[in-house]
């Protein structure tokens, strides 16, 4: 009987061993965060002041001016009165239902996260398009970042930096950055080889080819990546509220623990509104910047 036990029972590792491994890893990481946590935290100070600055700006500006500016931006991006009016009404409703402050906080965190994700993601995508080796190294890493349950990111970030805005921002960026990296890489790789060859033939160097051919032609794809990144950041904001990120996520969290369905729904809808606004603005901008490609083909 004893011989055949491994057939019916999974040959598990000894519990004591597993515990030892976990303890060793956690302990090592804890020691690391105790030793370097402060330095790393101060490294992120500029990020914190940027975030607080944005938040302050959005909250101190009178509400009607904020609505006006957002509507104006959506008009400039899309040239559509309908979208512009819809945005104004949606934001008015958000304020009317008492979610203005939370929404502004969420918006500032999304703006900061998106800007950082673009600032990091686009260059990484460019490098990735340049080197097949880097691509084959980064692709699995991006897969892990996208599929790992979002909660798991929160643990090491909180251990290192405690709870608050900065760890929230970092977790959101890690979760949301893969699409912009992936699609920048893809967009550049899909650029028409003939056009690129023409640029080379006229003596363009790497940078000139990048700025005058590759990036402009890849722009629609890159914009699609940015759009997805924004959407993922928005969905992560709720999760990030668990580690003290202020904004629309917190009432949602509160609603879950207290079974407040209406409160949860309203805040959820406010997130949806933000998502739609960001989505439409970025989509129609990408669409409009490619107008010349959509015109009827001359034959």
């Amino acid at each position: 009987m004893a011989d055949a036990l491994w057939l019916s029972e999974f040959p598990e590792m000894e519990r004591a061993d597993l515990r030892a491994i976990r303890k060793a890893l956690d302990g090592a990481y804890r020691d690391f965060s105790r030793a370097y946590g402060d330095q790393i935290e101060s490294f992120f100070d500029p990020l914190l002041s940027l975030l607080i600055g944005f938040e302050h700006l959005l909250l101190t500006t009178p509400w009607w001016l904020v609505i006006l500016v957002i509507s104006a931006i959506s008009y400039l991006a899309s040239r559509s009165i309908k979208l512009c009016l819809g945005v104004a009404i949606a934001f008015f409703a958000i304020g009317y239902f008492g979610m203005w402050e939370d929404t502004m906080q969420t918006m500032s965190i999304i703006l900061v996260c998106t800007l950082l994700a673009i600032a990091i993601g686009v260059p990484v995508g460019i490098l990735m398009a340049r080197s097949n080796r880097l691509q084959s190294l980064l692709t699995p890493a991006l897969d892990v970042m996208q599929t790992m349950p979002a909660f798991v990111y929160l643990i090491p970030v909180v251990m290192l930096l405690g709870i608050g805005r900065i760890p929230g921002v970092i977790a959101v960026i890690i979760y949301a950055i893969p699409p912009v990296i992936r699609l920048t890489n893809l967009g550049i790789r899909l650029v028409d080889k003939d056009v690129l060859e023409a640029a080379t033939a006229f003596g363009a160097g790497y940078l000139k080819r990048l700025t005058s051919v590759q990036l402009p032609l890849a722009l629609p794809t890159i914009m699609a990546g940015i759009n997805q990144t924004i959407m993922m950041a928005l969905s992560m904001v709720v999760v990030a509220s668990m580690i003290g990120v202020k904004g629309l996520g917190q009432p949602v969290l509160k609603s879950i623990t207290n079974q407040y369905f209406t409160l949860g729904l309203l805040n959820g809808l406010a997130i949806v509104v933000l998502a739609i606004v960001f989505d439409r603005i970025s989509q129609s901008y990408a669409h409009r910047s490619q107008r010349h490609l959509q015109r009827a083909q001359h034959d």
Binding site: V195, T200, G203, G205, V213, L217
Partner: peptide, 25 residues
């Protein structure tokens, strides 16, 4: 070398392509 080759192409050579290869944007 790279830089010199780019210079040389700019100065002395130009090219017309079968499928035009114009910049669409």
């Amino acid at each position: 070398k790279n830089k010199a080759l780019e210079q040389f192409r700019q100065q002395h050579l130009s090219m017309v392509f079968q499928r035009f290869a114009l910049l669409p944007h």
